[in-house]
């Protein structure tokens, strides 16, 4: 039970969402003490407490030991919270590791257009985050992490589902050009109120 996907879960990218974490890592997570002691029976609500205590993002370290970040990511894949819940996670901006977790989950499970629309605005979040791997802890930034998720095939030791390239979506008219707050500022554009931004798109 502890390791099964929630009943009624939707297949993501054509498979059980938990399989988005490859078998080797997944099995290491199932054996991990943090998983067993802290992730058992977590809900979308109680998971928040754990996520805000995270000290780092990352996949595995040392002898293929999964990070707590990875355990919580698998948990999310298991319980598959509603989209609205993920957006709530993102909006709780003072909890940066909760946001990082949500960002990773969204990249793995949402449709390409949504991934760009939801993640790109976070490229302005320049807060520091720790990234843990076998080499220890490293400093990265939220914007850098988001950029990696949008471009790289592998992030935090996870092979990400294929993401349609931005220019393809643009050519098909499914998405507008990327907006950069910095570029807007440099070009002297007025501060874009949320209502105005909406109506323009």
């Amino acid at each position: 039970m502890a390791n099964t996907t929630v009943r009624g879960a939707l297949a993501i990218h054509g498979q059980n969402p938990q399989y988005l974490v490859e078998t080797v890592i997944r099995n290491r997570i199932y054996e991990d003490p943090y998983w067993k002691e802290h992730c058992f029976a977590l809900t979308a609500e109680t998971l928040i407490d754990k996520a805000i205590e995270l000290k780092a993002i990352g996949g595995v370290y040392g002898n293929n030991k999964p990070t707590e970040f990875m355990c919580l990511l698998l948990k999310l894949l298991q319980i598959q919270p509603e989209k609205e819940i993920l957006l709530e996670y993102l909006q709780a901006e003072e909890f940066k590791y909760l946001r990082a977790l949500a960002v990773m989950y969204i990249r793995m499970t949402f449709r390409a257009v949504e991934v760009y629309e939801i993640l790109e605005p976070l490229l302005k979040d320049f807060r520091k985050i720790r990234y843990r791997n076998s080499g220890g802890y490293h400093l990265t930034f939220m914007d850098e992490f988001v950029d990696q998720l949008l471009r790289d095939e592998r992030v935090c030791d996870i092979i990400l589902p294929r993401l349609t390239k931005r220019d393809v979506l643009e050519d098909n008219g499914e998405i507008g050009p990327r907006k950069s707050r910095l570029l807007d500022a440099m070009e002297g554009k007025e501060e874009e109120g949320s209502e105005r931004g909406r109506s323009r798109s």
Binding site: M1, V6, R7, A41, T43, A44, E45, T46, I48, D49, I52, I79, P81, E82, E84, I85, E88, Y89, A92, E94, F95
Partner: peptide
């Protein structure tokens, strides 16, 4: 029960609001 309850958006919102309040001074 071995079935995990599903949280609602409202519960999630309330939890975040609570934690926010709790960590306010720190941030």
């Amino acid at each position: 029960t071995t079935r995990i309850e599903r949280s609602t958006v409202e519960q999630v919102r309330a939890r975040i609001a609570f934690l926010r309040e709790k960590t306010k001074e720190a941030s």
